[in-house]
């Protein structure tokens, strides 16, 4: 009896020791990374604190004097996010059908479509923004193209995954009624994945709105352009005002997106 208890307790101790070692390894990795990037550089941080405080001090009170000039860039940003998402969804549907195992016409097409989606996803939208600004000039258009193209990578992948997880039974029934391949996709598969597609698209729109506030920084239109301008001439009171406006807009878009997504359940 006694020895049995001892065996159980020994095992318990060993489990605890193993857990401790694992925790120690993770903590070490985190510490090394933090030291490497200078997070523990006390002197430098201490030096920074006064200038941070003075910077924050310079931001107050927020200056809304030029607020009227921000209306148009804000609308630009909103339009960019909507148009960019629409662009992404338009190209995502056909790409997803090629990149889903159950609808792809050929395994090679499947691999190519997946590669395209991965490629688009791995180029950051800011980089795409810089490229498109160089290609078509300043303004909202390069921003829309950058947001749209980058979004295809994620939206298309999610669409493809939804298509792959579709219930095969009604699809078979559609086929049994004499429907051809495209009719089966249109009437057997798409009605099933529509709610997920709507969900992903609306979420992506919300993301694109946040992303498009940054797009202005590379000259691709929107409120980010104003933000960058104020930062350059060190109008920190105006910077804070713009940031507050963006915060309000993002909150509103988030709320609207949540309502829309619930509707599509």
């Amino acid at each position: 009896m006694q020895s049995e208890h001892d065996a159980v307790l020994l095992q318990q101790r060993q489990t605890f020791r193993r857990g401790s070692i694992q925790l120690l390894v993770v903590a070490t990795v985190i510490t090394i990374c933090s030291i490497y990037v200078g997070l523990f550089d006390g002197a430098r941080l201490a030096e920074g604190i006064p200038s941070m405080i003075s910077l924050i001090g310079e931001m107050f009170p927020p200056d809304f004097q030029n607020a009227r000039d921000w209306v148009e860039p804000l609308l630009d940003t909103l339009a960019m996010s909507v148009a960019g998402t629409a662009l992404a969804v338009t190209f995502s549907v056909p790409l997803a059908l090629l990149a889903a195992r159950n609808t792809t016409p050929h395994p090679v097409v499947y691999q190519v479509a997946r590669a395209i989606l991965n490629g688009l996803r791995s180029i950051p939208e800011l980089i795409m923004g810089i490229i498109f600004v160089a290609a078509v000039g300043f303004g909202a258009l390069p921003g829309v193209l950058a947001l749209g193209l980058h979004s295809i990578g994620m939206v298309g992948k999610f669409f493809a995954e939804a298509i792959e997880h579709v219930d095969e039974a009604p699809v078979e029934a559609t086929r049994a009624a004499g429907a051809n391949g495209l009719q089966v996709i249109w009437h057997g598969i798409l009605p099933q994945v529509l709610p997920q597609m709507a969900d992903v698209s609306i979420y992506r729109w919300e993301y694109n709105f946040r992303a498009s506030t940054v797009m202005g920084m590379v000259g691709a239109g929107g409120i980010g352009f104003e933000l960058m301008g104020s930062l350059r001439i060190m109008q920190y009171q105006e910077v804070l005002a713009i940031l507050l406006v963006i915060l309000v807009m993002v909150t509103m878009v988030d709320a609207l997106s949540a309502v829309l997504r619930r509707k599509f359940k």
């Binding site: 039974a169 009604p170 029934a173 049994a176």
Partner: peptide, 13 residues
């Protein structure tokens, strides 16, 4: 040829 299935095989939504 009309086919009727065990699990109905309808689209629920």
């Amino acid at each position: 040829t009309g086919m009727i299935f065990q699990q109905h095989q309808l689209i629920g939504r």
